[in-house]
Design a binder for these strands. Sequence first.
DNA 1: AGGGGATATGTGACCGTTCACAATCCTGGC
DNA 2: GCCAGGATTGTGAACGGTCACATATCCCCT
Lengths: 363, 363
Amino acid sequence: MSVTGHTSPSPAESTSEQAAGGPSRQRTRAVSIRDVAKAAGVSYQTVSRVINGNSYVRDSTRDRVQAAIAELGFRPNSAARALASGENRSLTVVTSNTTLYGYAATLQGIEEAARAAAFSVGISVLESSDDGHVRAAVDRAADSSGSVIVIAFDHAGTLALQAIPDGVPVAAAVETPETAPQAGQPWVWIDDGEAARSATRYLLELGHPTVHYVAIPSTTHTSRRTAGWRAALTAAGVTAPEPVGAGWDALAGYQAGRTLARDPAVSAILCGNDDLALGVIRAMHEAGRSIPESVSVVGFDNAPQSAFYTPALTTVRMDFVELGRACFALLHSEIEGAAPIVPHPVGRPELIVRESAGSFHHA
Amino acid sequence: MSVTGHTSPSPAESTSEQAAGGPSRQRTRAVSIRDVAKAAGVSYQTVSRVINGNSYVRDSTRDRVQAAIAELGFRPNSAARALASGENRSLTVVTSNTTLYGYAATLQGIEEAARAAAFSVGISVLESSDDGHVRAAVDRAADSSGSVIVIAFDHAGTLALQAIPDGVPVAAAVETPETAPQAGQPWVWIDDGEAARSATRYLLELGHPTVHYVAIPSTTHTSRRTAGWRAALTAAGVTAPEPVGAGWDALAGYQAGRTLARDPAVSAILCGNDDLALGVIRAMHEAGRSIPESVSVVGFDNAPQSAFYTPALTTVRMDFVELGRACFALLHSEIEGAAPIVPHPVGRPELIVRESAGSFHHA
DNA sequence: AGGGGATATGTGACCGTTCACAATCCTGGC
DNA sequence: GCCAGGATTGTGAACGGTCACATATCCCCT
């Protein structure tokens, strides 16, 4: 048990306090550099030098200070440090989700890069796209020191991004923008329009008369992904069927799949992500339609499980981890003020052909 | 452009600075309560009262201050606030993974509960169980203000938990302990021993002569999950086969599955998590063994996708989100010092019967 | 012997906020 | 018309560090 920090320890008092069962004002004064300094017989500044690796410290002094640090169990207070230095080595990730693959992987990339740059990372989850919740999440994140990264793949994220007050260093991972964003917008994204087009073309080349699309929600008016799919279709001279809007998860895919399964003309489906594809496949299976013989399904994202589905999922690889890293890099250069910030796409998605799509067999 | 904080602004100097292209010491002094106070014609303390909702402020004054706050775009500096108040409303989650279902869901639960209690949450990822990395992660997390939650489902996490210095408020989500932990250990877990036993019993009752086990890595000497599986087997009078140790992901399950598939005597497999089960099923499929006709598979965790696999996965529900919430609650009560901290299991796992396990058909 | 420059160490101020403790202003009761 | 006491507001001192700027101390060189 550690000492409770009474300046003048009085057994009687501490006993009565316990008896009273009061809120036990445990303001256990943490050990500070001044305490360490006293113990080591040096000035607080020397202690500061030691913990910051300043070379202008005699070895013997350094040893003494480090011994005192270990002895007292001193740990620097990062709040004080941030305050005094004005440094800004912390960032908060604002996101509406932490478990969906795309979000989680992006977060992972951000964390990796941030860790490498000695930034600490916090998370602030958007409970909904309700105005109050968005504001709350942004307030939590946009501390006056500290910067922000927004994962703006969805409506809530987009709102949060817009709500970030001026003056806060910010970067965002966004959905592929409809038109090239102007310089200065600290955005990164994975350009998936072309990927959607080539996945669709792939399906068309397999002989399918058309390709249906089960879409994730989009924040833009005309999602690039949808546009790519549509472009491939029109290029092939077939009119695009109505895309079926779904959510993000397997259940949403399942529901969309049930509808699609009723239409015998449906033979190829492109899905906005792998979870959706999983749900669609499940629905098809229940409807007695086999994959890929009766209907071909292509997913998006290449979630780690997708290779192990039966049939293994043909999908589009999206490097979200790299996206996260790039997003941090953008933020970092923004903070450093070194390079001008230019929005840019990250990586190039690639179609991973596996088993869930096959050539068209006439019914 | 905002002022760069020269005490005596000198246009010439700032120009030369730009021309020099130096590191652009952008110490853009943030707006503080003192600035707001000046603008509103009150003292800084009054501003402090307004932002903290203190009731001893005249309405008209409050309005004036709030107007000034909005006008200047003031945002409180949480570092300064934490420093001055000694408050500790932030926590860092130490975890070795953020994407695996169990970890991600636990993190989600922690975040939810923390948010509700107005705590800010940070994450510190353990890169490996290497000593240096563990120490680094703990140092990052164990700031002198602030508390820590460790997700200690694995070796790295356990090491990190042990490495947390004394005096840091800490709670941990752990693997089911071998023996009841002593009071005072701030631990929560999901008691999965019984669940493993009943899942195994379920398989046995389906007529399977024995049940194989594809295990996740354990931090304890004899994992409770393994023990439960073994207990069910011995209770039924069958000697337990050697459990096959695997990793955490589908690939590990796939590899274990390939081995198991070669043995025609294998008819029922319990897996340490759903990803492992997915991999096992894939391997069986490739080996020409159908699920559940030729071999039955039961997973663990009930990841959201598992209901949509084909066949839908029979698995054990584990409420990780609740675990995360409970873990935060433990930490919170520890900080408040109100209730004594008692380690305890959370929720009760439950077998979810779906399609991947069926009755034994003699080969 | 007297610089001069690197090496070591110390002192005072300040970062933006809260806390403890006045000080002032009001208002109703007598 | 005066006073107790709540409502309001202000002042000085932390909080635990860093920064800028001395101040020693040491060693080498002329």
